[in-house]
């Protein structure tokens, strides 16, 4: 018998002995010009979870966050001597310190919650990866420029190629690579139906208090509905947009924990992220590679003219992220 559970227990014991180091530092890629859809969703989920727990944290954007992380995936938090990466380990690490959102739940509810977390982690994350790395239009016009934006010339192509290989291999093994875009939307729809059924008109998934599932679902729904790059992503956000309950849930978490006006609305394409990109690019003027992308997406999205108010929100967002 390999000593799996023993090593888990030891890690937990060690974690529990340490006092709370304040504040927690959350490392992630640059939100404006670098981060990709799946990573963005995960980062948002972790941020939401930390906020729901009422913990102070600082966002530390790093261009090489992916390579700093112990598991090679973002985001990760630094908490005293510990580096913990990804949503699930972060949640269990924080609960070993005594603040958990799901401690009150019964055994059955806890098992159900794990099952739904698996559902989101599999279906939504794989769909996001698929759109980013398999869908050719998005891959060429969004993913590659963004993922390679922080590396110098030959390296950006090399790393893009490496990452693409890694992701395609994984999607192939999981049986997602050979799906068509419509099949992927179908999977997303099934997942959203299941989540909406579980929500059943309640405020949160399990009773009146948020749990880690709420944070995770918020992260993904928010990222998917506010990142309109190309028709493939728009198709996905339109699919999600049909589930009014999920949109409401997302909006609620947004206003309660992120203290900003939600810009999610159904049937309209959201310009939040594109805007922030635009404003960022204008202010720095250093990322030429992104210009064609923004223009493309603007054309695609028939950008409306009231940019000013949105830009303001975006600047506020940026400030908030820096302050935490």
């Amino acid at each position: 018998m390999p000593d799996v559970l023993l090593s888990d227990t030891i890690a937990m014991e060690l974690g529990a002995q340490e006092p709370w180091p304040q504040p927690i530092k959350l490392y992630q890629p640059y939100e404006v010009e670098q981060i990709l859809l799946p990573d963005n969703a995960n980062c948002l989920a972790v941020q939401a979870y930390l906020k729901m727990c009422g913990l102070e944290f600082q966002i530390e954007p790093r261009s090489n966050a992916e390579y700093m992380s112990p598991s090679g995936r973002v985001p990760f938090i630094q908490c005293g001597a510990f580096l913990v990466s990804e949503f699930d380990p972060i949640v269990s690490f924080i609960s070993s310190k005594g603040s958990s959102l799901s401690g009150e739940l019964g055994a059955t509810d806890k098992a159900d919650m794990r099952a739904y977390i698996s559902l989101v982690n599999n279906v939504l994350v794989n769909a996001e990866q698929y759109v980013c790395w398999v869908d050719q239009a998005t891959l060429i016009s969004v993913t590659k420029p963004r993922h390679g934006s922080v590396y110098p010339w030959p390296l950006n192509h090399l790393l893009n190629w490496q990452k693409q290989n890694q992701i395609t291999k994984k999607l192939n093994v999981l049986g997602w690579y050979n799906k068509s875009l419509d099949e992927v939307f179908g999977e997303v729809k099934n997942c959203c139906t299941a989540l909406a059924e579980r929500l059943e008109g309640k405020t949160y998934f399990f009773g009146d208090e948020p749990t880690e599932l709420d944070a995770l679902v918020y992260g993904h729904i928010h990222a998917l509905t506010t990142t309109p790059f190309l028709p493939s992503v728009c198709g996905m956000s339109a699919t999600i947009g049909r589930f009014q309950q999920l949109i409401e849930h997302c909006r609620l978490v947004n206003t309660l924990y992120f203290k900003k006006e939600s810009d999610i609305s159904v049937g309209q394409v959201y310009l939040h992220d594109t805007m922030s990109q635009d404003s960022f690019c204008n202010s720095t003027g250093s990322l030429e590679s992104l210009f064609p992308l923004t223009e493309d997406s603007f054309a695609m999205l028939k950008a409306n003219e009231k940019n000013d108010s949105l830009e303001e929100t975006c600047h506020l967002d940026l400030k908030e992220f820096v302050i935490g």
Binding site: S118, E197, R198
Partner: peptide
């Protein structure tokens, strides 16, 4: 019930993942 059907979907993915 529809909610239980949703649970079936969720558990199915959990088993497949874990």
């Amino acid at each position: 019930t529809p909610k239980q059907c949703a649970e079936v979907v969720a558990y199915d993915t959990m088993l497949k993942e874990k």
